[in-house]
Every structure is written in C-alpha cells, then in structure tokens.
Design a protein around this nucleic acid. Structure first.
Lengths: 223, 223
DNA sequence: CATCCCGGTTGACGTGGATCAAGCTTGGAC
DNA sequence: GTCCAAGCTTGATCCACGTCAACCGGGATG
C-alpha cells in the first residue's frame, strides 16, 4: 500500500503524521456509494482494498464510466475544483477506504515537501490517464479499446501482486462498455472474438490472458 | 488575466512574489511548439494571449487532440507526473506565454496558502474537464459533440470579454474532428447541417451562433 | 496577373458498431 | 433442492459515421 500511494523517504515522525491523517477508515459493501455527484467535497479517499467505478451522468440518463479504481489509488480529486463532487463513486465489491480530510492534507503538504510533490504527481498522473482514455475513445476501434482495457487491468493487477494473466472482472459488460464507449453487446462479441482467436479465455467475469503479445499487436494496426 | 488564472485576496507583497514567478515570458508564432512529448518537464505555462492545442500521438500516427487552450489557461500540468511532457502543445496563432518554473511554484505555494489551494483547484478543474470530454466521446452523437464544442468555445470567449456569438475558429476541421472523435468530413457536414437548420452561420473559420437554445436542445435528446 | 496548395465542402457508397430480439447461465432467495 | 432476476451471449438487421473522390475558394507565391 505504502509503495503504491505514499511518497518514499519520509522520516519516522512524518510517517506518523501521515498515518494520523489517513486514520479515518470506512467499509463499503458492494453497490454502496462512496460519494455522489453534487455532494459537498471535504476529503479525498485512498482505497485500502476493493474495487470502485466512477461515473458521470447526463440529464437524460446516459452514463459515462470515467474510471475503475483499485487498492492504492485515490478517489475524489475531481471534487477539489468546485468544493463539490462532480461524479459518483460506487464500490464494485466490498471495499475499505481511508478518508483524507483535504484541508489537513493541504496543511501537511505545506510542511512535508515530498508529500506535496507526490500529491501533485498523483493529480498529474490522473490527467495523463484521462488523456489516454480520450485517445482510446477518440481514435481506437472496438478491438483496440478492449485490448487496451485488458492489458491495463492486467498491468495494474500485476503491480499489486496478483496474477497478470488470470483475474475476475468486477464490473459488468455494460460498465466496461460505458467506459470504452461501446454497447454491452459489442463488448461481449469482442470478448468472444478474442477467445476464438486464442488471445484470451473468458467465461463470464473470469478472464485468462493467453497471448499478451497478440493483444498488444491488435492495438497498433488498422484493420 | 489575473481574474482568470490567479487567486484573489493576496497581499501586495504576495502579488509581487507571484509577478516575479511568472516574469519569464516567451512569444510563439503560429505553428510553433511550446513543448513536445518526451521533453523534460520543469515549468508549467500560463497563456497570456493566443490559442493552443495539445495532442497525443499513437505510434502509428493517429492523433488525439486533448484540448484547446486560450488566454488565462495553463499548459503543461501533464508533465508533473513523470517529469516529462506527455503531450505536444502547439500554438494555433501567434501567442505569448509565461513560463512558471514548477519547483518555484511548489516553494511559493507552501508559503501562500491561497496560491496552493488555487493551484489544486486548477488541476482538479482539468480532471473535471477531461471527464466532460470522456462523456462527449463515449456517449454523444456527432451533432451533440459539435454543439457542445461550440457552446463551450462560446462560453470561454464570453468569459474573456469577446462576443459569445461571433468568433473565428483557430483550428482546422481536422483538429476539431480529432478532438471530438470525428472525421473532418463529418465535422464539415455537421456544420453545414447546423447552418441549414438555422442554428449557426458558418463560413470557413468564421462562426456566428444564431440560436444558443437550439444548440443546447440538440445535446439532450436522442434522435 | 496566373498558379499552387491547403483547407473546406459535398456526394456516393461501405462498414463497424448499434439496435432489436431471443435464448442461455449463474447465483442468490426461499 | 426450485425459482427468479440479472447479466451474458448470439443472431439479424439497421444506420451513423467513415471512406473515397471530386470539386471549390481563398490566400500565398512568383
């Protein structure tokens, strides 16, 4: 956890103060909302365990999933700008989070330079990630989108010590589709095609990646 | 300029220190790059005047425009995460920017709380903006995307004291298309359709918005 | 002045993914 | 165990947007 979401090179005393900051824990069951669009913002959240999605809704009900977050990642950065949350965060499995009161984070990051810099990097990384999603939504075809999605999940599971090639999806086809700008049927069909072509083995939410190179190759060529 | 991109409520002395920070000006001609993908990051940039695009490229040459920036907006936030720029920033007209050395900004924002908070808000606003683009790319149809784009431009021009209804586009149809996830022909056709329907008058880069309500109405209903 | 060229428009046609619809699988409730 | 609802798969058809191609218009160049 520390390696993933906290800066290195802190003194014992600094670590202690950080631990105080993130001491406010909370458990959520699958389906629970961590926060909702429009709610007042006063804390960001570090995921200790579990899996989340964030989404934004249009007035007519259309949903865009803006991200899937797992242990070690932060939620709520969108709320800083307007003092209100601008999306919904929903637990996709039973999860545990730390609430980090934002005003206290700002105080502490004035005193601990590495914390300040780390926090800026985390926000910036979120912006870079979003640009990657724009690239995906703006220029890629369905196959490329799903391949990129699977490879990204695989890489993040690996970073957390799980198998890079064998995992359970926490989200539905519809949620994957919303994230990737596709309909659930297209997601399902593309899974099936990947399976026929031997790139993966998929049965409902259980995915095994059989051919990483093949998936990567799908991403770089038209046709 | 100050109203748009600087925090309010600073003392004279604080303002002086800020002015020192942003004293490093630079002029760019149309087509010049402010920075390129992979270049070392050491400063963010405030646009004093002019117009920019940022884009990311895939290995096979596909381009995704990630944003259009105008006076008072910041460029380069993407570079903080990895100490290298992760996109290209290109001037779409002759422009002037202030380079803000990032390490100095971090020092100063430790001392001026309102600056720190303002900077966090700016980064967060960028994240929120990106979510809006995801929504646009993931769920909207061509008409909705272009209407949203025009209304957004209009609103930003208004905030800068320009006409909300009469402006020149600084970017090509292809760049608009790249931003909106459409081909240039689709952008062109959709402009023509908007004109036929009386929502706008368009001649090449000159756009007049005739019916704001009509454009807004286009955005919320399927079909 | 003529020429070039880049960007824009428009038309004809093709297609990837959406839509509509029918089963199927699975896991939780009882 | 049975039942049911939610989610997944698959097929048939449709259509919004992409592709390909022709042409136009205006500003830069010589």
């Amino acid at each position: 956890m520390r390696e993933l979401c906290l800066p290195l090179g802190l003194t014992e005393e600094e670590l202690q103060r950080l631990d105080d900051l993130v001491s406010n824990r909370r458990r959520l069951k699958r389906g629970d909302r961590l926060y909702s669009f429009g709610a007042p913002f006063d804390a960001i959240y570090a995921i200790r365990s579990g899996f989340f999605k964030t989404d934004v809704l249009l007035e007519d009900g259309r949903e865009q999933v803006t991200g899937f977050q797992m242990a070690g990642e932060l939620l709520g950065l969108d709320g800083i700008s307007s003092e209100h949350h601008t999306c919904n965060a929903v637990a996709l499995e039973d999860s545990e989070i730390c609430a980090i009161p934002f005003s206290r984070l700002e105080v502490l990051s004035r005193e601990i330079h590495t914390l300040q810099h780390h926090f800026h990097k985390v926000m910036s990384r979120e912006i870079v990630r979003d640009h990657g999603v724009m690239m995906l939504l703006g220029t890629m075809r369905a196959e490329e989108r799903l391949a990129a999605f699977l490879l990204n999940l695989s890489q993040r599971f690996t970073a957390r010590g799980f198998s890079h090639a064998d995992f359970y999806l926490r989200m539905t086809r519809e949620e994957i589709g919303s994230y990737l700008g596709l309909k659930l049927e297209t997601v399902s069909r593309t899974f099936s095609r990947f399976q026929e072509e031997g790139h993966i083995a998929v049965q409902q939410k259980h995915v095994r990646i059989l051919d990483v190179a093949g998936l990567k190759a799908l991403m770089n060529y038209r046709g």
